[in-house]
Structures are given as C-alpha cells and as structure tokens.
Amino acid sequence: MTVEIDRSEKFAGYAHPERLVGGDWLEAHLGEPGLVVVESDEDVLLYETGHIPGSIKIDWHTDLNDPVQRDYIDGEAFAALLGAKGISRDSTVVIYGDKSNWWAAYALWVFTLFGHEDVRLLDGGRDKWIADGRPITTDRPSPAPVEYPVVERRDDEIRAFKEDVLAHLGRPLVDVRSPEEYSGERTTAPAYPEEGALRAGHIPTAANVPWAKAAAEDGTFRPVAELDAVYREGAGLADGEPVIAYCRIGERSSHTWFVLTHLLGFDDVKNYDGSWTEWGSAVRVPIVTGSEPGTVPSK
C-alpha cells in the first residue's frame, strides 16, 4: 500500500523525485492509510514540544544506535521498533526533523540499510513546516502495533567501513564537514561538543563540500542545476564512479548521501558512518591537514 507521490514542479528535475514531499502534499495526505510520518531530531525533546499531527518519534541515538556496540540496531530490534510504531514493511514513511533534516536523512539512510522501500523526506523539515504556519500538536498518537518482518541489515551497498575507505583512497571522497574541521583547525563543528578525535584534518584526497551547500536558506534542497554545479562541476564527481561521503559521526554525510543518491542519481554512493570520530583516532591511517585535498601516501 503505497501513497501517491508528490508531483510538484520543484521535485521534477531530481533523479528520484518520489523521495521528497512538500508541505502542501503532506498536509493534504495526513491521516491517509498507509502513510506514517516520523520525526527525527537532534534535540531529543523537540518532538514533545509539538510535532506534526499523527507523527511518531524515532530518535537516532536512543532508538537506532545499538546501546552497546558502536553500530546500528539489528534486524530484530528494527522490526520490534517499527512494528511498535505502527510501521509495516509496505508503509510509506515520510521523515522530517530539525537542522535542515540532518537526523531525518540519517534515519532515512538507516531505514534504507534495512531495505525499507518507500521512505521519503519532507523538504525543508521541521523548521519550514512551522515557519509556514502548518499544524502542530503535542498529542501523542498511539499507533496499533503491527508486524514488521525481521530483515537483516545490508551494510554492503550504501555503508562504508574504515577498511573500505582505505581501499578506496584516490577515488572520489567527499568530506562534508566545515572548512575548519577539514583543514584541521578543529575536530568538531563550530559550536558543537568535542566528540573525541585524537587528530584533526581530513582523509587524503577528499574534497571538502560542506553539507549545507545542498540546502537553501529555508532548509529545502537546492534545485538540481545548483546541485550539479556544486557536486559535478565543483567537486568533480562523475557518473559511474563510486563515491564515499563522511563527516564526524555520519549524520551530516547522510544528508549529502541523500542528495547524491536520490536527487542527483549517482548509483554507487556510500556513507562512512565511522567518519572522523573513527578515522581521526584510528591507528595507522593517513590524514592530511590544511585546505588542500592532498595525495594518497605511497605506502
């Protein structure tokens, strides 16, 4: 049971316009059978202060991360989580969140690891929905639990591990952090807490394309021509070449992964979720400091 797609003009130019919905579309489809709206934020309390009517909350840290191992939850836990939230395998899931959808994109990427087919983002996320004066409520829905099948996570297609990145060096890598983090002046985003990397800098040969270049002032995604200018012309990404994106813990690079995969149509994009908090502390991996991409070490 799939809910019709948003055929707005704005999305038509994207490679996979069915991955986005706008505010008008969502407001018109709220409550439709087969549609589940999910809020996923950086701030763990934001949903409680008010959310889109009928939406449920999934937290990137307390729900999607494994509490013990640095990894995502497994197929069994994912099935239990989604089933309890009233999400079926064939539900259309629309995710939205704060900070231009960083965590929403991260949640969408995790849903994709489990092969959930119809998962979309609300263009502009939470802030635009509220700025547009659309309805918000503090009422919590109580969805009837459903059966979600246990599907094992597939980490090989869209997720990169440290070893994959080492083997990939010299091929397209996108560092989506701020220029200060990339050059090595600091290991955290400006105004963000220290998340513990021992060294500062970037992965050799990575191009620096801060995630926000894909977002307009209002948090919506930029039109395809502007995205092409940033990623194809600017960063030199070419169709047919595998790309790996990374940031600090994998949330901002999920945003870029979404742009490259669903909006620009690159067919082999991976998100390295270990990102700088792993690479910047790992033993025997090369780094580069300064604002140039640098070269692959000979050994």
Binding site: D43, V44, L45, L46, E48, T49, D98, D127
Partner: peptide, 8 residues
C-alpha cells in the same frame, strides 16, 4: 525554545 533539551 527550539532547543528544549539544552533549555532543560
């Protein structure tokens, strides 16, 4: 207000 956890 958009940062309720921090406010808390």
């Amino acid at each position: 207000k958009e940062a309720p956890t921090t406010r808390g």
